[in-house]
Amino acid sequence: MKDSPANTSLNIFPKSWSEAHAGRVPGNIPIWVGILSELTEFGIFFAAYFIAKFYYPAVFAEGPQQLNTALGVTNTIVLLTSSYFMAKAMASIRIDDRKKSERFLWLAVFCGCIYLVIKVWEFHWNDLQGFSTNTSEFFTVYYYMTFNHFLHVGWASCAILYVIFRLRSGAYSSKDNSGMEALAVYWHMIDLMWILIFPLLYVLR
């Protein structure tokens, strides 16, 4: 993957940042530009959370107790499991076991769909309790963060379907799998963001 066009076209960085000096880039450089942009976006959300919590500590102490914690925990486990399936899919393609790799990718999509269904159910449950974006400062931050994350899981699940299609057409092998690996690191990034969102919104008082 070292010589793939995606990794050699951006010669704008110092030599010390190159793969030869700093180590292999999983996936490709463009996906990492995307990932670092997404991390910045979520970083702004987290900063907004902490600023709002500073000004409204009572609202943020009460907010998590009004949410359905069981659904939050279930979604965390579902996303962690999906990351595991993605890592297994990568391990399988590296030994040219395309069937196994495809099976793990389907399991990852399945987990993504379960997450989306649970999240829709949670939004519906919130609605039944009378919670909306205007209920309090906590719920404004909650909906901004969780709906944004929801969209990321949605389009990344579609991306997995595309990778499955490419895998079936023989596009990936043990020697050439940087496209699939790019999706894998993106999916793990989405999981990482939920690892931070979950305690902020569901656990901390």
Binding site: W17, A22, G23, V25, G43, F46, D191
Partner: peptide, 30 residues
């Protein structure tokens, strides 16, 4: 997740540093 699922433990040290830094800064804010 960064070291084992993203495989940055043996990967690019700059990316690993940035990712790990993220998970030091925001938990510190907690």
């Amino acid at each position: 997740v960064i070291d084992n699922f993203m495989e940055l433990k043996e990967g690019n040290k700059n990316l690993r540093f940035l990712m790990r830094l993220y998970f030091i800064i925001f938990p510190s804010m907690i």
